[in-house]
Design a protein around this nucleic acid. Sequence first.
DNA 1: CAGTGTGAATATTTTCACAGCA
DNA 2: TGCTGTGAAAATATTCACACTG
Lengths: 271, 271
Amino acid sequence: MATGRTHRPATRSRGIPEATVARLPLYLRALTALSERSVPTVSSEELAAAAGVNSAKLRKDFSYLGSYGTRGVGYDVEYLVYQISRELGLTQDWPVVIVGIGNLGAALAGYGGFASRGFRVAALIDADPAMTGKPVAGIPVQHSDDLERIIEEDGVSIGVIATPAGVAQQVCDRLVAAGVTSILNFAPTVLSVPDGVDVRKVDLSIELQILAFHEQRKAGEEAGAESAVLPPAPAPYQAPETDAASASGDAAGGKGGRKGPDGDVPAVMPA
Amino acid sequence: MATGRTHRPATRSRGIPEATVARLPLYLRALTALSERSVPTVSSEELAAAAGVNSAKLRKDFSYLGSYGTRGVGYDVEYLVYQISRELGLTQDWPVVIVGIGNLGAALAGYGGFASRGFRVAALIDADPAMTGKPVAGIPVQHSDDLERIIEEDGVSIGVIATPAGVAQQVCDRLVAAGVTSILNFAPTVLSVPDGVDVRKVDLSIELQILAFHEQRKAGEEAGAESAVLPPAPAPYQAPETDAASASGDAAGGKGGRKGPDGDVPAVMPA
DNA sequence: CAGTGTGAATATTTTCACAGCA
DNA sequence: TGCTGTGAAAATATTCACACTG
């Protein structure tokens, strides 16, 4: 029941904007560092600098949580650590399973920051029988046959998928069926999940591609900063080798009429 | 020269909104999959579904690139793959160095999607002399003493930092000094870089914390979906054990006046 | 009087809805 | 007729600037 009531309202939580939620962990980390150095208070300016944002944004963000500062002074570090932790739900600890103990899964299992704040690696799961029982980062790998049992027994609600893309969806389905409602996906695939399940994605090559885009822009900026509205690259479009289907007459036809900035490419034309 | 001219305008590139740039890799991946299955054309609806976004957004995104579709038909897959690749700068290939070959660095080195589209691992670099020469994912690790030489010789402009947080900033500084202008940072630290250098961050524990936030909300939603505007958790604030500094009289003082939603915590009070 | 908290202004992103074209 | 391309509206997010307060 309760599947798909509203369209997808779960994104926006209470009053706190999603963009703010995404920054809270950042503030928390900066605050934790201050706390370890026994710094009693910080101003929004200082904290913002440590977190890499600007102070107006930080103050606005905090204003959604409540009025936790002291005018003319700043914020009490310990107090704020507590408040943000609570807001993020880190005062309880969350058992997490990692599925797919390859290179990446092993790296995740050994990641210190994982265990440190609020999260506990409840189990490592892999489909390879050769891995079963082998300890990784001190935790024995369990076979994926036991996935459902593990999740239920430990009350796991957060799953991390570090499998190859090909099996990510089916792993996801099993996790969800077993009761997991939040998934962190490292596999380069779009996962489809029912309403009420949150998925966050971490994708290497996407990040690199975004960097490449900006990198390319910088390269094109060498001459004439103002007038440099030239296209990324005038490289010619390589003929698309339409194998089998759609060879004659259809598709790849009327591309001449595009009105993109410029950098026109020769219209497609099968040899 | 050219350091810090404008405040930081580099974020917004040409006409293409940043949010759109961030989705282009997603579209590209979906299109590549279609291309491999020799699908000649897709509608915005189909492609959007494959990429996990809605079709209006996708069409709007594509409209920034130019008019690459055919009304009544859809988009030519090959043609669009080419256009997006070009826009992202993937028609050239980018040599990348990975610094810090621990668990994570090794995982990154072996990540297939890395090499596949436009990126080439030019070098693996680690500070540990015991690693030097050891092949990881088929590539011999080089010592960090050679970092500057490697970057210059290979013309590397993208660096990946997978070191412990403690040394990330100094690695970053060396990369930048040697000519790297885009950095993908896996270390849980805020890097500070000069103007003109792009940093993207991938952070495990931040992602988990965001999931935890939403997870917590779900848990609190059990009864009374409407009226459930209750605070995350009424857990009491643990007295902050102000060691040494600021023990008496100051800080942690006037917290009673906060006007946060509710869930008041007992004011701090040293025993 | 230094520094928070926040309305108001601005900028960006998403969504709608439909004109226009193949 | 079906689907793109896009103005315009709505929703979000960021930034400004300043009243207010400890």
